[in-house]
Nucleic acid binder design. Structure first.
Lengths: 116, 116
DNA sequence: TTGACATATTCCTATATAGGCATGTAATGT
DNA sequence: ACATTACATGCCTATATAGGAATATGTCAA
């Protein structure tokens, strides 16, 4: 086989930097495609394609308003990603603690040695 | 151009389901490659390649122990992902609240109507 | 050294894009 | 109907992989 499809899931969808930019940009309110093109400096077809991917995985919603289509991030779709990452939270806290403890132990040892 | 490199950053590295499995498996303690091959049912070369990618982006650490190489997840490397996803937390909370409010309003309206 | 075990790398192929360009479709105003 | 605006899609190309098989490298044990 070959590389996996990016269209399939949230993880692949946000792997693309441009799409992450778009998601941030559309997080607080709905905006027409033209806004994205202007502010993020991307070609219009490129934006449409990225929006298509994001829509397929449920990361944005659309609403037609006259000639415009208003897109907005469906923040809820980001949660699986957040939750997956959160699985490692206790580990990085523990590991940071480990680093701290080692540093303190080394500091104590250095102290003891200098006292001799 | 073409598709972006998965080796370049954490987002692309975790876009691959197999690699996510490996990261979870190696989260709590270090394990030799053979363990991954057996438990996750993957070909040995495939595992080595995924580990290589994960190592390049700093998501696992290695330590040699005789014939074995012991790999472990560097949970700290997941934090950028967690923090990026966290940017959307207030939005999904707000959006869920919106849903709740709409539901309550509709419930009130239905109640009022039934009283007539 | 030889053999066995453990892991890494190389080579090859198939495929899923992302980018760019041209074109298609939809809605509005005149 | 026609021109204009706003998006979407189709087509083509270049490229970065994953997968698989074979091989290379590294380590230990007898």
């Amino acid at each position: 086989m070959a590389r996996a499809a990016t269209t399939s899931d949230v993880f692949n969808a946000v792997a693309e930097p441009r799409r992450r930019q778009i998601l941030i940009f559309l997080a607080d309110r709905e905006r027409p495609v033209t806004d994205i093109v202007e502010k993020l400096q991307m070609d219009q077809p490129a934006v449409s394609k990225h929006l298509r991917v994001l829509r397929d995985v449920g990361l944005v919603r659309v609403r037609r308003n006259g000639r415009h289509k208003l897109y907005q991030t469906r923040a809820d779709g980001i949660r699986p990603l957040h939750e997956w990452a959160a699985l490692f939270e206790r580990f990085w806290k523990r590991q940071l603690l480990g680093v701290k403890e080692r540093a303190e132990r080394m500091a104590r040892e250095a102290e003891t040695k200098s006292e001799k």
